[in-house]
């Protein structure tokens, strides 16, 4: 008996489009994926739009408007398995920097007529609103991880995504440590794997695209950064990027803000 193809949906919230683009960047696999699943809702790729329910739903982006806070509830109801893809969806993204600022002032900086802009005070992760079955980190996601998670789910298996720090990837693949050798500030010891230690391979310190790893030792990390000459404010500012909405990065960033105010 021929099995029904599983229905795949892709939804976008506040984001840059890059994580769903990762799917279209799978040049070698795209047509195979399109043949293996029923792409029922993927606005960036197709004008064919079908209603749910969906077997697997990928969600990109963070929740920043009242409308979107309602929309994610409806999408959840329509989805058997919901996977968030990328830093915006899993942590609120870089736009979560607004969470510690005066949003009215930010609107005024960008728009001449602020009264037209309707937005929430915060940018939040999808999991702050609905149950999320699996999360894929990264700004952007790693397309090979995305394919592997999709493949597992379509075969009814539990996806396995490692959560050790980037630091370990460097050690495993023999990448010279930029922190020890060059004294370059590097978030590798506290950052979630997924990029295969990309920045250290290019002689650059990790800047935390994949968010906090399992049990990140931010206090020990602060000691190292201080020894490299970073001020407390600089250490805090280092967390003020794509995963600033996720603990303990949020808390480390907030410490810097609190010190600024004193």
């Amino acid at each position: 008996m021929k099995q029904r193809k599983k229905k795949l949906a892709v939804f976008k919230f506040a984001s840059c489009d890059g994580c769903q683009l990762s799917l279209l960047d799978c040049e070698d696999e795209l047509l195979a994926v399109a043949g293996a699943v029923d792409i029922a809702h993927f606005l960036e790729a197709s004008s064919r739009i079908r209603r749910g329910p969906y077997d697997v739903t990928l969600v990109e982006g963070s929740v920043t408007t009242e409308h979107d806070a309602l929309r994610i509830q409806k999408i959840r109801e329509q989805s058997k398995i919901l996977v968030t893809i990328g830093a915006c969806a899993t942590s609120g993204g870089i736009q979560a920097l607004r969470n510690s600022r005066d949003i009215a002032e930010m609107v005024r900086v960008v728009y001449a007529s602020p009264q037209y802009i309707s937005t929430l005070d915060t940018s939040t992760a999808i999991s702050d609103h609905v149950h999320v079955d699996y999360e894929l980190r990264g700004c952007p996601v790693n397309k090979h991880q995305l394919l592997s998670v999709l493949t597992s789910l379509l075969h009814g298996q539990v996806p396995r995504v490692p959560s050790h720090p980037v630091c370990l990837d460097c050690k495993r693949s023999g990448v010279v440590c930029v922190s020890v050798v060059d004294g370059t500030p590097c978030l590798g010891p506290v950052t979630h794997t997924g990029c295969d230690a990309l920045c250290p391979r290019y002689g650059r310190g990790c800047f935390g695209c994949y968010g906090p790893s399992d049990t990140p030792q931010v206090a020990a990390q602060a000691l190292v950064l201080r020894r490299q000459g970073q001020s407390d404010a600089q250490i805090a500012a280092g967390y003020a990027s794509f995963n600033v909405g996720m603990q303990p990065f949020a808390q480390e960033f907030a410490k810097g803000l609190a010190k600024d105010k004193r």
Partner: peptide, 25 residues
């Protein structure tokens, strides 16, 4: 939804501008 990049950039070290603004698109 708007993401207020021009406001997010304020106060950041200027050398972060290439990596931050890349996230616009």
């Amino acid at each position: 939804p708007p993401r207020f990049f021009e406001a997010l950039l304020l106060g950041k070290p200027c050398f972060e501008a290439p990596d931050v603004t890349a996230r616009i698109c």
